[in-house]
């Protein structure tokens, strides 16, 4: 048998495993894979034909519910060091109270995955970057830890790792001396799954979070965005955020 054949067998076995894994997922309760149209072969680069986005309906976001935050922490192995000022929070719940009317509401805040991200503009090494499909990431291999992106981000979405870490999640590498933020669960998205926070919100039947391709007119997020008015946080900066809100 030639070397190539060996590799082919290897690849087939992996594909088989992947199929089994997705079958298992589809059977799991409370998980809806509504965006199956985007299956991307693993060896193909992401393209700008897709733009991942999230629609957050503040009216449906339950006060006191932290399931999205917990799901994110579990998914990425985010642990604290009892230092709340610097402990990582990729997604956080914020409570708003209108100064004039007293109306209160709550919503999750995370990296807004801007089309024109200020963090990418200011990064000296190109470690802050935006993928073709609109997901804003930190390439920790080339991040020098200067934290200028943290100063530039209008959403306070980024945090810095001060401590030596161990037992990171294999699909969420993170380490001391680098900046990090929400990745839209890029490892899940590349595997045709939805981010952990969305999954958790849906499982709880709150359905406040919708994730999908904003360039695909038939996707749930595109249709909802077209049907209802939505807002961007700090729309004045014209960043064209990938995360949109309803009810703020």
């Amino acid at each position: 048998m030639s070397e190539q054949e060996g590799i082919d067998i290897y690849r087939r076995r992996f594909l088989g495993n992947a199929a089994k894994a997705s079958a298992g997922l589809a059977l799991a309760p409370g998980i809806m894979l509504t965006e199956l149209g985007h299956a991307k072969p693993a060896d193909e680069a992401v393209t700008g034909q897709v733009r991942w986005g999230m629609l957050i309906d503040s009216n449906k976001c339950a006060e006191g519910c932290n399931d999205c935050v917990q799901a994110c922490n579990d998914e990425h192995g985010l642990t604290g060091f009892d230092r709340p000022a610097t402990d990582a929070q990729w997604i956080r719940k914020v409570k708003l109270k209108d100064r004039q009317t007293g109306h209160t509401q709550t919503l999750p805040l995370l990296c807004q995955h801007c089309e024109h991200p200020p963090c990418v503009d200011v990064c000296p090494t190109g470690a802050s970057f935006k993928r073709e499909d609109g997901i804003v990431l930190v390439d920790k291999h080339i991040c020098i830890g200067c934290r200028y992106c943290m100063m530039a981000c209008p959403y306070k979405a980024r945090s810095f790792i001060h401590e030596t870490l161990q037992d990171q999640m294999p699909y969420a590498p993170r380490g001391k001396g680098t900046v990090e933020s929400c990745t839209f669960c890029v490892h899940r998205v590349d595997d045709d799954r939805t981010p952990a926070c969305v999954e958790a919100c849906t499982a709880e039947n709150h359905n406040a979070l919708v994730f999908g391709d904003m360039h695909d007119p038939s996707s749930q997020i595109s249709q909802e965005l077209e049907r209802h008015s939505s807002q961007q946080i700090r729309a004045d900066l014209q960043l064209n955020t990938g995360v949109r809100y309803r009810g703020i």
């Binding site: 290897y10 992996f14 693993a42 060896d43 992401v46 990431l137 390439d139 490892h187 590349d190 595997d191």
Partner: peptide, 10 residues
Amino acid sequence: TVHEGIRTQQ
């Protein structure tokens, strides 16, 4: 993988 989302396993 990081920049293009190519997740081949080899």
